[in-house]
Design a protein around this nucleic acid. Structure first.
Lengths: 329, 329
DNA sequence: ATGGTTCCCGCAAGCGTTTGCTCAGACGAG
DNA sequence: CTCGTCTGAGCAAACGCTTGCGGGAACCAT
């Protein structure tokens, strides 16, 4: 910067003002400075800037890099939105454990990020408290909970699952089963709730035999489907609580010789990338992942702008992607 | 920090030395400082530290967040290895375009990362030159090129494709086709090379009718397979150049009523997550993604440690995941 | 001419750490 | 008792930038 100033024949403060457009500079002077910057290849030192301004223009993203099925899309959306606002993204892997989360958050804090996007690990609370205590603005992504007074963004689960039920009911199904997710996740609870809600709206009765699960993996889906196929008056349609389990259920149904779409309708949540590669392609509720990412960043920036604004929870509605596995049409 | 010093009744320089263990401090003094740190809740300011030390203990990762099929695994490995060494990961999305790449690299440089991991966008060179010019240590990940004098890590393509050919030949196939990737990627060239090499080793003749492609998407795979199915004396086995095309080829073959594994063997590269969800499951060469990520970080750290060491290119060998789609067994 | 405005721009004080120098005191040896 | 050695700790100068304050030149109206 000193070199630039010297080359342009001005003081470094003028260079600073030119770079930041922080006070009017005579056109000719500005041009000279700009030229000097060009020839010296000067790149501002964000570190030094941060030291004096107090902000780092960076946000931390703490989530499980492996457990999130939408990570690429989500990160892409976050990165784009952040970059557009002049922010950089720092990564922290929570490993989906309390300890990992604590470590990730600490690390990000030590880096003095201006704010954080966090997908909390199961069972956690202490980290959230620490966040609140240290006053680092944060918004919770994807795993939403009403008992927390923080900004949050996530998919809407109740109505969307209900939609799934109603869609199947409209196609004539009367025995609609549900493969539920792991219990500690509020998303699972909500989807289960939505299932019941949908049944009610469709005028169908809840039958505990038609609910299987409590898992999240491919294998869990296999087992759940296996069990559902043994219940008397077996279901003609199955709704799966998450992407991986949908795959397992799908395989298992086919392994039993069922023609998916005809003998058995299968629909799921989470639009995984292979959903349309299998035959029949899977009908799912697809999450507005991009929108979630962007909204999260926007919420964070809004809070950075006005720390006093009341916490806000945004639920984004999944949309039904109608493909072959539900058998209608 | 000043508060800590005051509270402990020492100078801030002593506090610094206690924190960094950078010079012996009398036990009693140290204890007092430590206690003071505890009660004040002091957390070192990484920003200020960076300003004076010149290093940021951070590395930039510049790649296409969307185009890389292994992003989660790769990022996870990178993050873990970096964190273990006390480094933080900054993200930059190249969008897989020259402009995006340039912007990402610039941004990361402005953040003064100590080094970068880069998956270069197609056709790029200018960014690499700039990197070299500005002297920011970098290692190229996944997309390797021999004409570049930088540290590089990526999958080995020639031998591994050859292995695929030989595997099929050993199962009795004589008409083995190849769906090649896009031309500008060195990985594609290498795989094509490996295909020819494998043919040679298996004592088979190269037949230009059996090479289709020049793409990367699902649709490209569909078209390539469609064409292959029209050649006289049609192939009994197909090797696909990348994951998405494998899916397309698979679908198209099945759409033609072929029983994959019996009528037609299909094997591919890139072990995508749905490879074992389809029936028959797909035999593929799976890339050692974790290893690639870890190695990349290690290479970078080594260079940070000794900037003068000669550039090194590490090729990691994919391994054959034997599943049903090749029909042998 | 002269006082008052307006425009531009330079000065210098930090921002929170690290670190080379320096120094005071304690202790042994001569 | 003096001097050389250590050990332990403080001083102050950077690091590269932002920004409040102040000053000089040019211009206008009187």
């Amino acid at each position: 910067m000193e070199d630039v100033a010297k080359l342009a024949g001005v003081s470094i403060s003028t260079v600073s003002h030119v770079v930041n457009e922080t006070r009017p500079v005579a056109a000719t002077t500005r041009d000279r400075v700009l030229a000097a910057i060009e020839t010296t290849g000067y790149t501002g030192n964000a570190i030094a800037r941060s030291l004096v301004t107090g902000g780092t223009k960076s946000i931390g993203v703490a989530m499980s890099l492996l457990a999130n099925p939408h990570l690429p899309q989500l990160l892409h959306a976050i990165e784009a939105e952040a970059t557009a606002a002049g922010y950089t993204v720092l990564l922290g892997d929570t490993l989906d454990t309390e300890d990992g989360e604590r470590a990730a958050v600490r690390k990000l804090q030590a880096r003095r990020v201006d704010g954080m996007l966090l997908t909390p690990a199961p069972g956690d609370t202490s980290t959230l408290e620490q966040l609140a205590r240290t006053g680092v603005p944060a918004v919770l992504v994807d795993r939403v909970s009403h008992k927390i007074k923080l900004d949050q963004v996530g998919p809407e689960n109740i109505q969307s699952t209900s939609t799934l039920v109603q869609h199947l009911a409209a196609a004539g199904h009367r025995r609609i089963a549900f493969i539920s997710g792991v219990e500690w996740m509020s998303a699972s609870e909500e989807r289960t709730l939505g299932y019941r809600l949908g049944l009610g709206r469709a005028g169908l009765r809840w039958d505990s035999n038609l609910v299987a699960g409590g898992g999240a993996t491919h294998e869990d889906g296999v087992l759940a489907m296996r069990r559902l196929l043994t219940v008397p008056e077996r279901p003609t349609a199955v709704i799966s609580g998450n992407g991986a389990m949908t795959a397992g259920a799908y395989r298992e149904a086919r392994a039993h010789g069922l023609d998916i779409g005809r003998d058995m309708a299968i629909v799921g949540h989470d639009d995984v990338d292979w959903a349309e590669l299998v035959t029949p392609a899977i009908t799912t509720m697809t999450h507005p992942v991009d929108e979630i990412g962007r909204t999260a960043v926007r919420l964070l920036l809004a809070r950075l702008d006005d720390p006093e604004r009341p916490p806000e929870t945004t639920l984004l509605h999944p949309t039904l992607i109608h493909r072959g596995s539900c058998g209608c049409a």
